[in-house]
Nucleic acid binder design. Structure first.
Lengths: 251, 251
DNA sequence: CGGAACGTTGAGCATAATCAACGACTGTGG
DNA sequence: CCACAGTCGTTGATTATGCTCAACGTTCCG
């Protein structure tokens, strides 16, 4: 098989063939996983009228830390990174977001964090005031958002354990496991294929490590035959998912 | 002055002198800072009828990770720690909670984390199903909760930066600054007095360090005359708040 | 007084960071 | 077509930060 950077089917074809906002939403690839899952088709029309599709190239910045917070969005396809910076420039990726995830700083004038596309990405964007008004209009939307934010908080708490208490080896193994679950495809003989959506530098920034340490740990996993790289350094095949699980949680 | 473990005025006197639920809430020390701030006096009566006061001694566990999640609460006085564990017993405190903070795992059957009182604590508790029903009944309550959860997420993101990218020195200085803002009292000559609500071990578990490293960094700050200890090792006076700010953010 | 819990300090060590060199791949322009 | 620069990734040598292990001091109980 060949691996590509398309993590999920994109909406390109749909956008090209349908024009009415309602049916655009109705056929959206994240209709059943994003916040809009909470709305019936009728209410969806209201949402659809306020949303705008936006395409971002890899590397492009959606919002800068410190700027006015006036945009929120759902991810339709692709992936975003959310980064925090120290005053002297050290960087920490606090979240990676994938299709169906919500992004944006609600109820706040300023963005605390910078959000950047790490691969080509399609978004469904709203102005922050419009979206906040929608939350009042549709209580089920607010409930779904609350649940998603609570899930994000759980993720963040898990990551605090990783950043505070786990070794470099455990962090890298855990990250690969996370990617395998989130965007992995079935490979031969029970293997899992992952097209890494991040550079080594971004892996390091996500895991609180340096690129050299990430590289060494990947080599270590390769030497142990837990994984292999197909072609370049971005197409990764987990040969031994059970061993990877054991490295993350050595029961 | 003498420092004590009472972080905020407690409700003991109030509980002893008033009996009706409504007035109990009305005179509650966190009436204007906890979730109930979103409710008018009338709606508060409904909330009050479902809530139960509970007193916890320092060290007592409110909920265990893995147990059924059937309790949520607002903190009236005292402080709680929320901890995550690796399978081999390494511990990370993912949050410290103070009066007005909400605690509990909503919309989930199992607690992912253990919650423990770190000082004597008064809570206003609800059963999870009852509280979730309240969220449906009072949209403003749900909105206030959403805002509080979003604030918790912002805190968590800030802590990821600390755990992933900051030195031991910066972590300890940052923690003292956090406590100074949250529970500090004015001292002489612009100093800030903090009665540390945590042991060295808990500081270490919060900061992703060991107790020895925490102790050494405190000694370093003491040597640099940034702080001093009054009496024991729990009553801390920040002599030079500006220098502390600089250590956290060396502009 | 004795013990336990908590905290400090020191010596040595290990993990991961830093510094440096080099290889692979990509796109550009002669 | 190849030379070149630029980006990305790997590997090695060395260093430093913080951990481990150990001893000891302090406080606060019974």
């Amino acid at each position: 098989m060949t691996l590509t950077l398309d993590l999920l089917p994109t909406a390109h074809g749909i956008q090209a063939t349908v024009s009415s906002p309602a049916s655009r939403c109705h056929n959206c690839p994240v209709r059943t996983s994003a916040l809009c899952e909470s709305l019936n088709d009728e209410d969806l029309a209201t949402l659809s009228g306020l949303g705008r599709r936006r395409n971002m190239k890899a590397g492009q910045v959606l919002t800068w830390a410190g700027d006015a917070a006036n945009l929120v969005a759902n991810i339709v396809s692709g992936a975003l990174k959310v980064t925090a910076l120290t005053v002297d420039g050290r960087e920490q990726i606090v979240a990676l977001l994938f299709p169906g995830d919500f992004v944006g700083q609600l109820f706040s004038d300023r963005n605390a964090l910078t959000v950047t596309a790490i691969v080509d990405t399609d978004l469904c964007t709203y102005t922050r005031p419009a979206f906040e008004a929608l939350l009042d209009e549709f209580p089920t939307l607010q409930r779904t958002l609350l649940k998603q934010v609570l899930a994000s908080l759980n993720d963040a708490q898990d990551r605090m354990l990783t950043l505070g208490r786990k070794t470099a080896h455990e962090r890298v193994a855990g990250f690969l496991q996370f990617l395998a679950k989130r965007i992995g495809c079935e490979g031969p003989d029970g293997a899992i294929d992952i097209c890494l959506p991040v550079t080594r530098c971004e892996m390091a920034d996500y895991l609180g490590l340096t690129i050299e340490t990430v590289s060494r740990q990947l080599t270590r996993l390769r030497t142990a035959s837990v994984l292999t790289f197909i072609g370049g350094s971005r197409d990764c095949r987990i040969l031994d998912p059970e061993q990877l699980d054991y490295l993350v949680n050595p029961i």
